[in-house]
C-alpha cells in the first residue's frame, strides 16, 4: 500500500500546528520516521489510522481517500496500528483481549480466530501468560500484547509508533527482525527515537521537524549528511564547546569525545566515519 500525502496540515485546538504543509510519499516496504519530541510523528500516524481528521491537505492510502468515511474504513480493514501510548482492558486476559480485537477486525470464523490469536501470542512470547489478566502485566508485556493486536488481521499497512519503547534488548531485536520479515510487499511505517532500529530495518526514512519534512531518503543518504562533520577528540580539559557531543568515553590522557559539528571543534580533532545517528544529529542540530 502506497501512502501519498500532500499539503497535510493539522492544527490542534489551542493553535498548535503539529503538521505544517507536509508532502510525503511512502512506498511499500519498511519506512522509518524520525523526529524530535513534538515533531508531529504521532499526529501523522493518527491521521493515517483514521483517528484524527486533518485541518487541510490530502491523504490517500492504497488509493483510498482518507477524507471520506468509506475511504477510512477501507484503509482500516487492512490496517494494523500500535499507538505510542497503548492501553489495554485490565480485566481481560491477553487471549480474551486479542480475541475481542480480532472480532472487531472482522476475523469472524471462530477456529481461524483462535488459531491466529494463539500464533501471535507465540510470536510475542506470551503463550505462558496468555490466560492471565492484563492488570498484572509489566509495561513491556503490555507492549507485546499491543504488537500482537496490530498483527492480528494480517494487515497490508502496519503503523507502529515507537513500538520498541520499554522492550528489553532481546525483545527489541526480535521485534525489529519480525517487522522486516513481515514487511515484504506490505507497508510498515515505523516511528522511533532509536535511530539504530531504523538503520537495521528500513530502506528509507523521513525526518520531521516542527511538522515539516526536513529529510527523505535512504539510510545511507542520511548517514552521508554527517560526512566531514563527525569528529573524535581526546582531551583532559572541558568538552568541546562547538557542536553536539555524541559520546564521552574515558581514555588514557583524558576523555575521548565524539562530536558532530560543521567544523573541527578542536585543533586536535580527527574526522571519523559517520554512523546513521550522526546523520540524524547533523540534520537536526545546526
Amino acid at each position: 500500500m502506497r501512502i501519498e500525502i500532500s499539503g497535510l496540515t493539522k492544527t490542534y485546538r489551542g493553535g498548535v500546528a503539529a503538521l505544517d504543509g507536509l508532502d510525503l510519499t511512502v512506498p511499500t516496504g519498511m519506512f522509518g520516521l524520525l523526529g524530535a519530541n513534538g515533531a508531529g510523528k504521532t499526529t501523522l500516524m493518527r491521521i493515517l489510522a483514521g483517528l484524527v481528521r486533518p485541518t487541510s491537505g490530502r491523504v490517500t492510502v492504497g488509493g483510498h481517500d482518507m477524507s471520506t468515511g468509506a475511504g477510512r474504513t477501507a484503509v482500516q480493514r487492512g490496517l494494523g496500528y500500535l499507538p505510542q501510548d497503548l492501553g489495554v482492558y485490565p480485566d481481560l486476559t491477553a487471549r480474551q483481549f486479542l480475541d475481542y480485537l480480532a472480532l472487531l477486525k472482522g476475523v469472524d470464523d471462530r477456529t481461524t480466530r483462535r488459531r491466529r490469536v494463539g500464533e501471535l501470542l507465540e510470536v510475542v512470547a506470551l503463550t505462558g501468560d496468555a490466560d492471565r489478566r492484563l492488570r498484572g502485566f509489566s509495561g513491556g508485556m503490555r507492549q507485546r500484547v499491543g504488537i500482537a493486536q496490530a498483527l492480528l488481521a494480517d494487515p497490508q499497512l502496519l503503523i507502529v509508533d515507537e513500538p520498541t519503547a520499554g522492550l528489553d534488548p532481546q525483545e527489541r531485536i526480535r521485534f525489529r527482525t519480525l517487522l522486516s520479515q513481515f514487511a515484504g510487499r506490505r507497508t510498515v511505517l515505523l516511528s522511533t527515537h532509536i535511530v539504530d532500529d531504523i538503520a537495521q530495518t528500513c530502506g528509507e526514512v523521513a525526518v520531521l521537524a516542527r511538522g515539516r519534512l526536513i529529510f527523505r531518503g535512504t539510510v545511507d543518504e542520511l548517514t552521508h549528511r554527517a560526512r566531514g562533520r563527525v569528529w573524535s577528540v581526546v582531551t583532559d580539559g572541558p568538552p568541546p564547546a562547538e557542536g553536539m557531543v555524541v559520546s564521552a568515553l574515558p581514555h588514557e590522557g583524558g576523555t575521548r569525545y565524539r562530536v558532530v559539528a560543521p567544523a573541527a571543534p578542536d585543533p586536535r580533532a580527527r574526522p571519523v566515519e559517520p554512523a546513521i545517528e550522526d546523520g540524524y544529529l547533523a540534520l537536526t542540530t545546526r
Binding site: 489510522a49 490496517l79 499507538p83 492501553g87 482492558y89 472487531l104 477486525k105
Partner: peptide, 11 residues
C-alpha cells in the same frame, strides 16, 4: 484506559 485508539482504528 487509552484503549479507544485501537478500537477506533478497527473497521
Amino acid at each position: 484506559l487509552r484503549v479507544a485508539p485501537i478500537l477506533d482504528a478497527t473497521p
